Structures are given as C-alpha cells and as structure tokens.
Amino acid sequence: MNTIKERLDTLESILGQFIVHTDVALRRLENEMKEFKDEMKEFKDEMKEFKDEMKDFKDEMKEETKKKNREWSNLAKKMGTLVEDLIAPALRPVLSKYFNCDVTMEGQRMFRRKSGMDYEVDAIAAGDDAVFMIEVKSTPREKDVDDIVEKSKKFFEFFPEYKDKKLAVIFGSITFPENVITYASRRNVYVMGWREWDYMDILNYDQINKQ
C-alpha cells in the first residue's frame, strides 16, 4: 500500500514539475512571440518609412527630370535647334510605338528645288510602307496646321521617290495648346511634343484614329 502511495506521490511530483516546466516554457514562448511581433512591427514600420522615402526620392527625381526637360527645351527653342535636339532623337521610338514603323531613312532640313521653287521640310522619316513629313514650330498655332497641310499637298511633287508610300504629317513642338491639338486632329495632322514634360510623344494619336 505504501509502495503505491509512494508511486502516486512520485507521479504527482513529476506531473507538477511537468506542469511548472510547461507553464514556464509557454510563458517564455509567449514572450518570444511578443518580442517577435514587436520586431516585425518595427520592421514593417521601417519598410514603410523606406518606401515613403523612396517615393519621395522618385517624386523628386521626376520633378527634377521635368525641370531639366523644360530648361533643355527652352534652350533648344532659343538656339533654333528643336529639330535636332528634341524631335529627331524621339522620332524612331515614337514611329515604332504608334505606327509599327522600322525607320529605314531619316533626314533633317530636307531641301529640294524644282522649276525655280524651293521646298524644305524640317525632317523626313521613311519605312517600308509609310513616309513621315515633320514640320516644327516653336510656338504652334492653328494657322500653322493649315500651312503644314497645304505644304504636304506638294510633298510627292518634290520627293517623288516616296510616291509608293502613305504620307503621314507630324507637327512637332515643345508643347501644344489644347485648341491646336483639337484643330490638328480634325485635319489629320499628328502633333508631337512633351507629354507632361516626361517624354516626347504623339499627343493626339487616339483622336485621329477614332475619327
């Protein structure tokens, strides 16, 4: 009988120690989990702060890029080099993007004389199926659109080598007033300028191709 009692006492002692150790382990685990959660919260806060800083940095860089583009454009305007500095470098990517055109010929200040008449185009680009006549003005107006359309009617007369291609007319500048974009769209003239000072782009492609 004593032996059984001793065993029960031993079992109770062991069970008590187990409960105590388990409770200690659970408390330790609970504390470690709390510390882990606190560390994760700190990490998330740090990541949020880092993301906010990166966003601020990107916004600052974007604004700085826009500022430099404005300064560069104003300088090109003053020097009369809009074609060389702004339009020509953007032609190939723009024509590829919107017209799926792989440019095989590109030229600036293209001049021809025929029957005593002079004819000069600011820039010409050609691919397999299309040729692009690009005229550039520093201060675009609706009247410029009319002049460009009239000028385009004689394009093949002075550049007959492109008669087998479709002619597309592009009006290039730094920026465009909305009324000029709308008017150019009605006359099927594409306008090419800065899109929000981020990059040179065709500003009315959708308007023309929805007509």
Rank of each mutant, 00 (worst) to 15 (best):
M1E: 05
N2F: 04
I4S: 01
R7G: 02
R7M: 09
L8R: 07
L8F: 09
D9N: 10
T10Y: 06
T10Q: 07
T10A: 09
L11D: 01
E12S: 05
S13R: 02
L15Y: 03
H21P: 01
H21Y: 10
T22Q: 04
T22F: 08
D23K: 13
D23P: 02
A25I: 10
R27K: 12
R28D: 07
R28I: 12
N31Y: 03
E32Q: 10
E35I: 15
K37A: 01
K37W: 02
D38T: 14
E42G: 11
K44H: 05
D52C: 11
M54K: 01
D56Y: 02
K58W: 11
D59S: 13
M61L: 13
K62R: 03
E63K: 05
E63A: 04
K66A: 12
N69S: 10
N69V: 14
N69R: 14
R70S: 02
W72T: 11
S73P: 02
N74P: 00
L75P: 01
G80C: 13
L82N: 09
E84M: 05
E84N: 11
D85A: 14
A88P: 00
A90P: 01
A90T: 12
L91W: 13
R92I: 12
P93T: 14
F99Y: 13
F99E: 02
N100S: 11
D102K: 15
T104M: 13
T104H: 08
M105E: 11
E106M: 15
E106G: 12
R109P: 02
M110F: 06
S115W: 02
M117E: 03
D118F: 03
Y119F: 12
V121I: 13
V121Y: 08
D122A: 04
A123G: 04
I124N: 01
A125W: 10
G127S: 10
G127W: 08
A130I: 00
A130M: 06
V131H: 05
V131P: 01
F132R: 10
E135G: 08
V136M: 14
S138R: 15
P140T: 11
P140E: 11
E142A: 15
V145W: 07
I148C: 08
E150V: 05
K151G: 06
S152W: 08
K153N: 05
K154A: 14
F156Q: 07
P160C: 15
P160V: 15
E161N: 10
Y162A: 07
K163L: 04
K163V: 07
D164I: 11
K165R: 13
K165M: 09
K166D: 01
L167M: 05
A168Q: 09
A168C: 03
V169H: 07
I174C: 06
I174K: 04
F176A: 10
F176N: 05
I181C: 02
Y183M: 09
A184E: 04
A184P: 00
S185V: 03
R187D: 00
R187Q: 07
N188P: 00
V189S: 06
V191Y: 02
V191H: 03
M192N: 06
M192R: 11
G193F: 10
W194P: 02
W194L: 12
R195H: 04
E196T: 08
E196A: 13
D198I: 15
N204S: 03
N204K: 04
D206I: 15
D206Q: 13
Q207L: 15
I208D: 06
K210H: 10
K210R: 14
K210M: 11
Q211P: 03
